[in-house]
Each structure stands twice: as C-alpha cells, then as structure tokens.
Amino acid sequence: MNVILIAVISLGAIGLIAAIVLYLASKKFAVYEDPRINQVAAVLPQANCGGCGYPGCNGFAGACVKAADAGSLEGKLCPVGGAAVMEKVAGILGMQAAETEPRIAVVRCNGSCENRPRIAEYDGVRSCAIANATSGGETGCTYGCLGCGDCVAACKFGAIHMNPETGLPEVDEEKCTACGACAKACPRMIIEIRLKGKKGRRMIVKCVNKDKGAVVNKACAVGCIACGKCEKVCAFGAITIANNVSYIDAEKCKLCRKCEEACPKHTIHAINFPPRKPKPEVAPEAAPATAKPVEAPATPKVETPAKEEVKVNESK
C-alpha cells in the first residue's frame, strides 16, 4: 500500500513540476505567428506543389498575409485552387481577390512518330534533360519534344502522361492545375502555361521550331515554317511571327479559327471546339486538301472528355 502511495505521489509531483516548467516555457518563449496565416493555409489545397512560387502552401499563406498588410493581393495566385480559392483567401484577409483567369499547360509540339521520322536512336538515361545535352535528338528537329517524360515525372497531380502512340505528352485538362512544374522541367520549353480560354476553347501553334522553313519541312510534317499566312489572316493582331515561329497571343485571340484554316502545315490547332459543321467543306476546300485527315482525328480526341469539365469549372 505504502509503495503504491509513494509511487503515485512521486510520479504526480514529477508531472506537476514538468507541467509548470512547460507552461512557463511556452509563455516565455512563445513565438507570435499571425493567426491569419493558419486560416489562409487551411483553405489552400495543401498540395505543396510550389506552383505559386513559394515553398509550399504555408509559405504562400505567409506571403499572402504579408501582401494583404501591404495593401494588395495582386500577383498572388494559387494556380491549383484558382480563382475560387483566392476568393476565399481574400475573404479571410478582408481584401479583393485579384482577378485571374484559369490557365492550363499546353504542349507545343506535334512531332509524333508519324509526323517526325526518327533518324537516329538515343541510348542513355530516360531523361529529357540528359537527352537534350546528348544531341539534337532522335529526329531532325532540334526544338521538338524528346519524349523521355521529364514533364510527367515533374507533375504532382498526375495530369500529364505520355501517349505511347505519338510519343508525346498529353495534358489531362481535368487534373491540370497550371502549377507550371512541367513547363519548368521541359529542357526545350515546349510546354507553356496558357489561358484556358472561353469554355476551354483555345488556339495553339503546336510547334516551337526556330529553324528556317526548309529545315523544318525536312524534319517534321507539321512544323511551323513561318510562312506568315496565319499572321495575315488574323484580324485581331493576335498572331506574331518571331524567330521563324508563329505565336498566338491568347489575350488577343478571338477564337475565329481562321488561322487554323490558313495554316498549310496544320500546325495551328483548335482545342475543344465542336466538330466543324458543313461550312469549311464548301469554302476553303481549294487550299488544304490533305488537311482534314490529319487534323480531324486529332481535334475531337482531346475534346470529348474535356468539355464537361470546362463547364463544371465555369459554374463554380
């Protein structure tokens, strides 16, 4: 009995002393942290992808609080959560969310095995960074996709995967959060984080080759030869040609699809548009006769699954 009592009392006393010490220590050495940081972090996706440019979600939350104290949330965007999350963050901090439009990663190369014949064989580590340092690549195009999947490895959301048929990466629109990790991982800067566009519809030049037309022609069936036809046909000045490659400014593009028709190499792709109705069959038949077979299967493939998700996004 006595033994039990002694044990209980001594242990109790040790516990009490420890508790007092801990209490005093926590008071004395307390570090003040803005409670709003935790609140903000709570609404963030906690994927810690780094897409915002800060080290993880907590880092971003801290940056947001600081920015709010400085007066504006401009430039702060969680690409994963998008506008919805930023609104919540702004609500917590009593600010107005900076307006943002949803973005998405796009692969600007269409050099599939068919379009871009392989003239050599790469033998080494399956890494784009290393393949890029080895040589110009397996094809005549020294700008196109290397197909080793560094972007796939970089994606934390499983939103990008290699299509074994084409040897090119494909972005899953539903999963892509536009964090930009893939764009950073690509040694050839083929992946661009672009505006998603109205209803997810957008026009893309699927080529980044800066070589002259003749060289591109030899290397790839669907490479941009910088002929300038798209630039001419665009009524909104959205298309510019620099360094032998065409680029569409998504901010200015009005999705008229004229450039797509004009492009003799079918480098310009219209994504998520409904399939073409009879119209083009009558009018520009003369120019691109071989156009349709190449393009027709390509466009709808991406389209069907993506469309619904786009609507969901908008209804939010």
Partner: peptide, 8 residues
C-alpha cells in the same frame, strides 16, 4: 548546320 553537338 548541325555540328558535332547535334544542334544547328
């Protein structure tokens, strides 16, 4: 012209 590095 592509040189030994493989790039033009």
């Amino acid at each position: 012209i592509p040189d030994a590095s493989g790039y033009r």
